[in-house]
């Protein structure tokens, strides 16, 4: 059993509108899972089902092998996209209240809060009212409240919104540290570069259906188009690569006269690779030969567009 969370054939209807259609997915233990999808695809509904805010009309969810039950609330930490704090309450008091709602005792909550306030460098905020805080400051408090009760499963929905780059990096480090500490993390965002940086697995939801799921590296392998980026300096003169290779580059070519260097991308079958490499090194200086890996952004757009054209 290597999944912390199993979602099996979950469907959800709002009146006649179907928000989720028999979605099944496995969230691997101790990893970061990117839950992606266009706006209105059904991500938030799925996340709310995991948090038992709403309940599925069909299907089941298992946390750590057990069917989801009210006591699991204490084992999940959820940072919603639409988040806020009581304006007129003091920061410390409020954090204490939210931590206790998650099932911590008052003393435990206090101790944990102290640790986290020190760690994120906001120790002197305890007696401030929330309305005195900036948006980024309030976000920090919300992050702490989400992770405070050491949940095994953490769900972050757009965790970096409202943070400046320095604080965003700080939060990213904290998320990675939590993963090192054994937590499993679901990460939902529209910022693909952070998916690229953080996630080992992804799932893509589009129009209530799960249309792509798996290990990020494996998905990339499937989506690669056998394209290679090449930087090469020919030995004699400046002939165009197409004359040399007898084929057209897919992208490029670009010639830098100062360095006498060509940059171009070729589409190659595995069987052609060895021969080409040999040719290039015989007739010039091969500076780089690299397979072009599709970015998450490319995969996202490609997959969604393919679905749209099918529909």
């Amino acid at each position: 059993m290597n999944s912390i969370l199993s979602i099996r054939e979950v469907s959800k209807f709002y009146g006649s509108y179907q928000a989720l259609n028999a979605v099944s997915l496995e969230i691997p233990r101790n990893s970061i899972y990117g839950l992606l999808g266009p706006n209105g695809a059904g991500k938030t509904t799925l996340i709310r089902i995991i948090n038992q805010i709403t309940f599925p009309d069909q299907g089941q969810v298992f946390l750590d092998g057990e069917p989801l039950a009210p006591h699991h609330i204490a084992q999940i930490g959820y940072l919603p996209e639409e988040r806020g704090l009581y304006k007129s309450m003091k920061v410390g008091e409020q954090a204490l209240y939210l931590a206790q709602l998650k099932g911590l005792s008052r003393a435990e909550a206090k101790q944990q809060l102290k640790y986290w306030f020190e760690k994120l460098d906001i120790g002197n905020w305890w007696h401030k009212k929330v309305q005195e805080l900036s948006k980024g400051m309030a976000q920090k408090v919300q992050f702490i409240v989400t992770v405070l009760h050491r949940p095994k499963l953490l769900i972050f929905d757009e965790p970096f919104s409202g943070f400046d780059p320095i604080n965003a990096a700080m939060i990213k480090d904290q998320i990675l540290e939590l993963k090192e500490g054994g937590a499993s993390i679901i990460f939902s965002t529209h910022r693909m570069e952070s998916v690229e940086e953080l996630c080992e697995h992804i799932g893509l939801i589009h129009r209530s259906n799960l249309i792509l799921e798996g290990k990020l590296s494996a998905i990339k392998k499937i989506h690669k188009q056998n394209r290679y980026e090449i930087r090469w300096t020919p030995l004699n003169g400046t002939p165009a690569p197409e004359e040399l290779l007898g084929r057209l580059p897919v992208i490029g070519p670009h010639y830098d006269a100062e360095d006498n260097t060509w940059d171009f991308t070729l589409e190659l079958q595995d069987s052609e690779k060895g021969e080409l490499l040999r040719y290039l090194s015989e007739h010039g200086n091969l500076a780089s030969f690299r397979e072009r890996i599709p970015s998450v952004n490319d995969i996202f757009i490609q997959t969604v567009q393919k679905q749209e054209s099918h529909a």
């Binding site: 038992q52 609330i73 919603p80 704090l85 939210l98 709602l101």
Partner: peptide, 17 residues
Amino acid sequence: IEEKTTRIIEVIISSVR
């Protein structure tokens, strides 16, 4: 209404019914 406009509601609802 205050809980809705401050958007704290979803945070609380993930802890209590």
